[in-house]
Amino acid sequence: MISCSPAEPVVPKEGGGNRERGAAPRWILADFDDTLAPGDSHAGLLRYILRRRIWPLLLLPVIALGGVVYLVPSQRRRGISLIWWAITLGLSPLGWRKLVRAYCHTRPGLFREAHRLLEEEGHRCWVLSASPRALVRAQLALQRPANLPYRTIGSRMHYRLGGLMPRFYCHGQHKLLPEICALDTELALSDSLHDLPLLGLGEQGWLINPTPARLEKARARLPHLMVKNWQL
């Protein structure tokens, strides 16, 4: 039985065997940053915006406070909201879209194995990311315009008090939306220990490019995890 409650331990989903032809598809759940693509594009976008706007450095104490608050697990959304608000204060919607598009052209692209996965299985792949949904979709559209995943779910941004911040922060346990828990998931993949609840939904779980320490911690909770070393 799958646990979808933040207070319960992660329990891997038992295999359901082969499906009869014509049955509902079995799904793939994939993280984005450092899983399908190398690097943290979320943090990278924040740095990119800050370098191009410069003046929000005057709000460095607010940015630093946000970083400290973010380190408290129960306050991550508030911490990241402070950082986003300070860096984007006064940024217009048009300016926001332009910066996202420009930043995507600086990114290294997807791992080779991620290209192959989306080529073969994109029609049944859900991409879930803590990065803003607009950022993830823009990167996927740039890299694979003809083979987008079935659905992309990310943090939902909105304007408040003159700056952007997440209305919904799609991180860790918050990726376990009701529609995600209801899927018949064949495979889940991520690089992050924060995504162990997501990995537990899959009949198979892939941990992408783990360090030995991260692998040891992950397998202490999900012994069935498989290691995948992906490259550009």
Rank of each mutant, 00 (worst) to 15 (best):
I2W: 01
S3M: 07
P9Q: 10
V11T: 12
K13L: 12
E14P: 03
G15R: 13
G15Y: 00
G15W: 00
G16S: 13
N18Y: 03
E20S: 15
P25E: 14
I28R: 11
D31Y: 05
D33W: 02
D33I: 04
L36S: 04
G39H: 09
S41D: 05
L46Y: 02
Y48M: 08
Y48C: 10
R53P: 06
W55I: 01
W55C: 00
L59Y: 11
L59W: 14
L60S: 14
L60I: 10
P61Q: 05
P61V: 10
V62A: 15
L65W: 14
S74I: 03
G79I: 13
G79T: 12
G79A: 07
I80Q: 06
L82V: 06
L82K: 04
W85S: 14
A86N: 06
I87R: 01
L91F: 02
L94F: 03
W96R: 10
R97F: 01
K98I: 09
K98A: 13
L99C: 06
V100H: 04
A102Y: 01
Y103H: 09
H105D: 12
T106M: 03
R107C: 14
G109Y: 09
L110Y: 02
R112Y: 08
R116K: 12
L117C: 07
L117G: 05
E119Y: 07
G122Y: 04
W126K: 10
V127Y: 03
S129Q: 06
A130G: 14
A130V: 08
A130H: 03
S131L: 06
S131H: 03
L135W: 01
L135N: 02
R137C: 15
Q139M: 15
Q139S: 13
L142T: 06
R144S: 15
N147Y: 05
N147F: 12
L148K: 07
R151T: 06
I153P: 00
G154A: 09
S155M: 04
M157H: 12
F168W: 09
F168E: 11
Y169E: 06
Y169L: 11
C170F: 01
C170K: 00
K175W: 08
L176P: 05
L177H: 00
E179G: 07
I180W: 02
L183F: 13
D184T: 05
E186H: 12
E186V: 07
E186P: 00
L187V: 08
S190L: 10
S190F: 08
D191L: 07
S192K: 05
L193V: 14
H194Q: 13
H194G: 08
D195Y: 11
D195A: 11
L196K: 03
P197L: 08
G202C: 10
E203W: 02
G205A: 15
W206S: 02
L207N: 06
P212L: 02
P212R: 05
P212V: 09
A213S: 14
A213N: 02
R214Q: 15
A220L: 10
H224W: 04
L225R: 02
M226P: 00
V227K: 03
W230H: 10
L232I: 12
